[in-house]
Amino acid sequence: MNTFFSADYILPVVGEAVRNGVIEITEKGVIAGVHAPDNPILNGKKIVKHTGIITPGFVNTHCHLELSHMAGVIPRLTGLVPFLQQVIFQRAASENHMLQAMEAADKQLYDNGIVAVGDHANTAASAPVKASSSIHYHTFVETLGFEPESAEQKFSEALAIAEQFNPHTTSVTPHAPYSVSKELFKLLNDNATEHQMPLSIHNQESEEENKLFRYKSGRFLNFYQVLGRDISGFKAQARNSLQTFMSYLSKDTPVLLVHNTYTSSKDIYFIERQGRNVSWCFCPNANLYIEGSLPKIPNFVRYHHRITIGTDSLASNNRLCVLSELKAIHRHFPELPFTETIKWATINGASFLGISERYGSLERGKRPGLNLLKNTDGLSITPYTEVVRLI
């Protein structure tokens, strides 16, 4: 027997919101229809009525499940370079402790209405949690190796880790411009092209990254020294990191650029001019936690690139909640309409991950999950809005 849910608004994401609309769901969670309130098909049907907005389940395009045990370990506002150092030196933990933290994080994601996650991994530790989860995971196995001579070895090590995840939902990806050599970038690009898989790259999360690429100066030099890395072969590029590393990637390779806190208008135009297959992922609460800064989101909105939302990890965020990220965006950029940003939290992420045939919008035949947003104001969220997972 089908179930009928109604709310102040049904927000399909693709198409117009339906005031006092009704969504019809089969026993298997498949959408059978989105109906206007006066549709005769509803005559005699038992309708479960709610106050608020019904949306598809959220898609979180950037997380680090395997860092869940580091919740509260690193203080706020350290800046990116000290944050990275503390992650490296403090991430060790027992297998059981990590597993319990990841299981709790997976439950938190689910309870917060998240149906799909793009998750970065450095090890295979999260594989058992993902295999048993109700959430759809696409795993991005991070590769790090700034010395050119280590490229082949680092690539082979990442491939071995990737084999322990679902091959249909796993990419081997660069970690960040400051941690991957040109040679390794090219190996990863060739692999992504061959297997038709997307890449996800931490981008310009700190101005120190741009200083490194422009002038070979800044705090990353000390970072490499502390790690015992030889970067004598690296030369200043006289341009920002984004404009450097994107030339190592094929034009059509789907790339998610994550954070973009210090991405300039010239960088955005650089991507626009080249017509690349780029999506921009914003993780505002993590940016505020680490650097105390946010991307200049209106600069990105001017172009028609795909924008998505991520939570990052519990090492740099208090919650794994897409709604919390949306609240942060609307708090700092109140001019943005929720009818636009909900796309960032749903269909855009599903499209990037290649799962939009099931997730991301309320359309007949899909199984996208169903969220109720309570304490809303018309078609807007408020600081008091809460998410309740309906299915």
Rank of each mutant, 00 (worst) to 15 (best):
T244P: 01
A93K: 08
P12G: 04
E147T: 10
H69S: 13
H304D: 15
H332K: 08
G72M: 01
I307T: 08
P128G: 02
S133L: 02
R229H: 09
P284H: 03
T253M: 13
G79S: 12
R91V: 03
P82I: 09
G310W: 05
V115C: 12
Y262K: 10
F89D: 15
V387I: 15
K266E: 13
G349Y: 15
R367Y: 00
Y262R: 08
A328F: 03
V141H: 03
H62T: 02
Y359C: 09
S179L: 03
H330I: 13
K28Q: 08
L159Y: 02
S150C: 02
H168D: 15
F213D: 03
P128H: 01
S150P: 00
G310M: 04
R358P: 00
M98V: 05
T26M: 00
A125F: 00
V48R: 14
G21Y: 03
L212M: 10
S134T: 05
T78E: 15
V22H: 04
E24W: 00
Y303C: 11
Q274T: 01
I231G: 04
S171L: 09
H305K: 13
R19C: 11
L288E: 09
S316A: 10
I88T: 10
Q237N: 10
H305M: 15
F300G: 11
T261R: 13
I135V: 12
R76C: 15
G310R: 03
A36E: 14
G118L: 08
F4I: 02
A121V: 00
R219Y: 06
H195W: 09
T55H: 00
T382H: 05
F213G: 03
C63D: 12
T339E: 13
P148W: 04
S217M: 08
A32Y: 02
M246D: 03
S181K: 02
L256P: 08
P198S: 04
L77T: 09
D38E: 12
C281K: 00
I54H: 04
L362I: 07
K49P: 02
M70H: 08
E207Q: 14
E27V: 00
H62N: 03
T311R: 05
G29K: 00
